[in-house]
Design a binder for these strands. Structure first.
Lengths: 170, 170
DNA sequence: ACAGCGAGTTCACAAAAGAAACCTACGTAA
DNA sequence: TTACGTAGGTTTCTTTTGTGAACTCGCTGT
C-alpha cells in the first residue's frame, strides 16, 4: 500500500494507520483502555477470530503500543498492557468517541460517557490551540509542509491547492 | 464483524469504525481536507486501486461524510466534498496527526505542521475538559455507562473492572 | 485420570483488496 | 475521419486477509 505522499515523505497519519489502521486494532486498544488485558478477554469481548487476534496483538507489541508481560509462571501466562506510547493514543480514541456519539448515536442514548475526575463533571473533550487556548477547527487552521518536508511534499501541497477549483476544505 | 459490546449496545467508536475503519477511508478523508475532490485526484495521490476507491467513495457518500456533486454537464462529471459531518472528523485526524508526529517521526523532521490562523502560530492541538478547561488524559478521566446503556453494557463494564487484577489503564 | 483454564496454533473456506485492462461520452487536433 | 486525451468509472483475475471451528500444551484442582 502506498500510503504516503507519492511514494515518499511520510505523512504522520499514514504512518499511524500503518500500525493501527485495520478494523480491529483500534477496538483492541479501546478495550485495553477499559482494562482488558488477557487474550481470552479480548477475544470474547470483541468476537474477533483467535488467529487474527494473535496477529494483531503481536503487531501492536511490535509497534510498542502494547507490551506483553508474564503475570504467572508454570504454566507461563501473559497479558497485554498499554505502553506510554499506547496510552497516548487516548486523545485519538476520545475524539472518535465524541464524533460517534454526536453523529451516530441518537441524542440522550449514549452508551458511554466521559467523567473528568479533576472537576467531577460529565464532560466532552474539546480541542484547543496549544498557544492561545482558543478552540480549533478545520476552518481556523491550515496544515502546511513541516521542517522535514522534501520538495515532493511541498509540490504535493501546491499541486492540490492549485488543482482545487475553490479553496481547500481544511 | 461483531464490533459492539457483546452483539448489542453500540459503542460510538465501533460505530465510527464501521464507517471509516478500513485502511483507506481515513486517508481519503485526509486528502479531502487537503482539498482533493476528484476521483483521479484521490487515485493518483493515494495509489489506491480504482475499484476499491469507487467502493470507498460510495460508502463515504452513503455515510454522509462526503457528498457527490456534479461540477460539469455533458459529459457529467462529479466531485466529492466533505459534508459538515465529514468536516467534524477534523479533530480525529488532528489527534492522529499529532500522535504520528510525536511517536513515528523523528523530532524536527515533521513533514506536516499545523498553523492556527487565529493567533498565527505553529501549534499542537490540545485536548481539554469542556467544563473546567483543564487538559485531559486517560489518567484523569473515567469512561462510564451513559444514559442509553442497557444492562449488558453496565455488566460489561463491571465485568471488565472486576476481572482486571489491577486498575484499568483508562 | 479426567475436566478445565489460558494462551495460543492449524486448517479449510470465504471475503476483500490489488493490478491492469476495458468502457463511455465528450472535446480537440490532424 | 481517425485518433488522442480526459474524467469517472467497471470488469476480470490473482493474491491477501479474515473467519470459524477444532486442536494443542502445560499445568491445577477434584
Amino acid at each position: 500500500m502506498t500510503i504516503n505522499f507519492q511514494l515518499e515523505a511520510p505523512c504522520p497519519i499514514a504512518l499511524l494507520l500503518e500500525l493501527v489502521g485495520d478494523r480491529w486494532s483500534p477496538l483492541i486498544i479501546r478495550d485495553a483502555f477499559y482494562g482488558v488485558r488477557r487474550f481470552d478477554g479480548f477475544q470474547q469481548h470483541l468476537g474477533i477470530s483467535r488467529k487474527v487476534l494473535t496477529m494483531r496483538l503481536n503487531a501492536l507489541v511490535q509497534a510498542e503500543i502494547l507490551k506483553r508481560e508474564r503475570y504467572q509462571v508454570k504454566p507461563d501466562r501473559y497479558e497485554y498492557r498499554l505502553t506510554i506510547k499506547g496510552r497516548e493514543l487516548f486523545p485519538v480514541l476520545l475524539t472518535m468517541m465524541r464524533w460517534g456519539n454526536r453523529w451516530l448515536v441518537p441524542a440522550g442514548q449514549e452508551t458511554v460517557q466521559l467523567l473528568h475526575i479533576g472537576c467531577g463533571e460529565k464532560i466532552e473533550p474539546k480541542l484547543v490551540c496549544s498557544h492561545c487556548d482558543e478552540p480549533i477547527s478545520a476552518a481556523d487552521t491550515r496544515t502546511m509542509p513541516g521542517p522535514g518536508a522534501g520538495l515532493e511534499v511541498v509540490q504535493a501541497f501546491r499541486q492540490i491547492v492549485r488543482k482545487s477549483e475553490h479553496k481547500p476544505d481544511m
